[in-house]
């Protein structure tokens, strides 16, 4: 009931440019919302405002009844906001397993334990192994993250968010740059999350076929404004989206 994620008049200005312009929107648990819009529409900026990487110029971010607007990114992460990044953002010289393990460690609140040896925390390692299994990276566990293929790095990025066990999952183009045979692993994971009625899933995605198959709801951003909001079929068919975003017939896969 009160586990909604909500933005109220959320706005950010960079000098004279308004990148996100008073966006008011609520996201419910058990719902997967796709956020679409042309390049530069403010989708990633909107994500950054929600997860705390950027601070709003005006407006509010609320989650589970709490105002998060003034909280830093780490504190929002601790409240349950998980984020996977568009530009892959890993710990490049640490191993795959270590990347995930650090994520588990953060969730379990093991932040300042100085005098125990990390390898003795088998609970953390065991959980990391589970996540590695989920994202199909067990075989690559001892490789440095920087040495992974692009697709594997994307999977690791998603795995790090899964390991956080957040209440809100924010995927920023999770399949961008992946080869065709790698995409299903990630889409399956997202589809599984969707079945969990307690989770809010937000997805920025360009590929319309992905959006159509996964999303319960689509919101459209254009020039920082929220211009459409509704069930996929309606939104894709609406005139404003045709004009602002798709430009061509809705049956075409990508608008980018």
């Amino acid at each position: 009931m009160s586990t909604h994620l909500e933005t109220r008049d959320l706005t950010i200005r960079f000098g004279g440019h308004v990148a996100v312009d008073s966006v008011t929107c609520a996201f419910r648990p058990g719902e997967l919302t796709a956020i679409v819009g042309p390049n530069g529409a403010g989708k990633t900026t909107y994500f950054n405002l929600i997860s705390g990487q950027l601070r709003a110029s005006a407006g509010q971010v609320l989650f589970a009844g709490e105002d998060l607007t003034r909280l830093s990114a780490p504190l929002r992460a601790r409240r349950g906001l998980g984020r996977a990044f568009q530009l892959t953002n890993l710990f490049p010289n640490l191993t795959v397993a270590e990347n995930i393990r650090l994520s588990v460690q953060a969730t379990r609140g093991v932040h300042y334990e100085m005098l125990r040896v990390w390898s003795k925390r088998r609970d953390l390692i065991a959980r990391a192994d589970e996540v590695l299994e989920q994202v199909a990276l067990s075989a690559r566990r001892n490789v440095a993250a920087a040495a992974l293929s692009h697709g594997d790095q994307r999977k690791l990025e998603v795995g790090m968010m899964l390991a956080l066990e957040p209440a809100v999952f924010m995927f920023d183009e999770p399949t961008a740059g992946m080869s065709v045979d790698e995409v299903p692993v990630v889409l399956d994971l997202i589809a599984k999350l969707k079945r969990d009625a307690s989770k809010i899933v937000l997805l920025v995605e360009h590929k319309m076929d992905v959006v159509r198959s996964l999303a319960d709801r689509i919101i459209v951003l254009h020039n920082g404004r929220l211009v459409a909001d509704g069930v996929p079929a309606e939104v894709i068919a609406s005139a404003i989206v045709q004009e602002a975003y798709l430009g061509t017939a809705p049956t075409q896969a990508s608008a980018a």
Binding site: S51, Q53, S72, A73, P74, L75, A77, R78, R83, F85, N89, L90, F91, P92, N93, L94, E98, R101, L102, S103, Q105, A106, T107, V110, H111, Y112, E113, M114, L115, R116, V117, W118, S119, R121, L124, M160, L164
Partner: peptide, 29 residues
């Protein structure tokens, strides 16, 4: 040696690698 091999020490290495990512995981760097 013990401190750098503790859970805390591993977070320090994570911060060295990417402060931005460490924050996104919930570590107060």
């Amino acid at each position: 040696l013990r401190i750098v091999n503790s859970p805390f020490g591993r977070v320090l290495q994570a911060i060295r690698e990417s402060p931005f990512r460490a924050e996104a995981l919930g570590y107060r760097i």
